[in-house]
Simulated assay, not measured.
Amino acid sequence: MLEHGGNLRDAAKRFGRDDWLDLSTGINPRWYPAPQVADNAWHRLPEPDPALAAAAEAFYNAPKMLPVAGTQAAIQALPRLRMPSRVAVSAPSYAEHAHHWASHGHTMTLTPYTELGAAVAHNDVVVVVNPNNPTGETVPATQLLQWADQLAARGGWLVVDEAFGDTAQDNSVAAHSGRPGLIVLRSVGKFFGLAGIRLGFVAAHADLLRELADQLGPWTISGPAQQIATAALTDQTWQTNTRAELHASGERLHTLLAAHGIDATGTPLFQWWPESQPEAFWQHMAERGIWVRLFTHAARGIRLGLPPDEAGWQRLQAALTEWTHK
């Protein structure tokens, strides 16, 4: 199993403390306030609620969406829906994409963002994380749609993972996902801070969504998750306020890092930089009870999410000051 952020039990076991400031995930630390769910949500088998799909289609501006148990479920299932293919996965990016395409008989290559255009001509499937996790790099929507058309013309797919796209909806290609060959993944875990309910959506042509639904089987989304997500996706006031708060917090984090000589890139939810001593920085922060995301392979560096409160900001600033004066 690949390593991910949010593994605080491992942190506690390794460093022997429980007062963690968790900046390892890039998940909104001020999550959507989940409403009370109806009693029968705990009792009935969770048949799909059309209201959830409708709320998602309106929020993401997509013609048709399939709810899935987190985008992870789709990432694992999509490679099973194709015969062995040539697949280019954007790199560095969320490692689960490459892992599952390589594990299901496909010829997978990791492709830098600067080489994705060339990869479209030589592959059957191209996977792009946009905005990228962990670097925040983006590809313009117009470019993605051109690539989607090129791939679809020969039966290929463009898979666009927009899990961190809720703070920049203007660059989404979900509105165009009714065309064959374009598959868009969205998540309620990041912007809404609801990673615990394990819910995401796939936007694609209706035929592909039927195949994917058959692959995933029945009752994939719990009843409580459906009710909570429907409320979150339709709460426009909370969404508007949260976007403004996240953009301000993201800028604050970028400015804080710059003040300590760190040239970072990212999104309103996280910042990343190619740290020359990533293991030492990770150790320094962990010894102060701050859990950050360490990358030691293709994206050798550090990713930081947002502190949840002013005490967290001050704690991070103190640790960064100690790091830069070592």
Rank of each mutant, 00 (worst) to 15 (best):
F201R: 00
G117Y: 09
L294G: 03
L320C: 12
L182W: 01
G6R: 08
A244L: 11
A121G: 07
T109W: 00
N40Y: 14
T71Y: 05
H205D: 13
S177M: 04
A168I: 05
W42V: 03
I75E: 13
T107N: 09
A280F: 05
L66T: 02
A102I: 05
I27S: 07
R14N: 03
G312P: 09
H99Q: 13
L316C: 08
N40G: 11
L306D: 04
R288W: 05
E96V: 14
G289W: 01
R86M: 11
W20Y: 07
L209M: 01
G223D: 11
Q36W: 12
Y32A: 13
L304E: 06
Q169M: 15
N28I: 01
F270Q: 00
A286R: 08
A62G: 03
K13Q: 12
A11Y: 07
H260K: 06
L52K: 02
N171V: 06
E96K: 10
A41R: 07
F201K: 09
F164N: 07
A264D: 02
Q76N: 07
D170N: 12
D166A: 15
A213E: 15
L269G: 00
Q146A: 15
D235H: 01
Q283H: 12
T135K: 06
Q271M: 14
S85L: 11
T267Q: 01
G181E: 02
P278L: 01
M285A: 08
L158T: 10
R243E: 14
A286V: 03
G196K: 11
E275W: 03
N130L: 05
A229F: 10
E245Y: 08
M108G: 06
R9N: 11
G250P: 03
Q146C: 13
V89M: 11
A298E: 13
G261L: 04
R154T: 10
E251S: 15
I75Q: 14
L194F: 10
G105L: 05
D149H: 04
Q72F: 04
N241A: 14
T324Q: 13
H43E: 10
R14Y: 02
A168Y: 08
S172R: 06
R293K: 11
A168V: 08
F201Q: 07
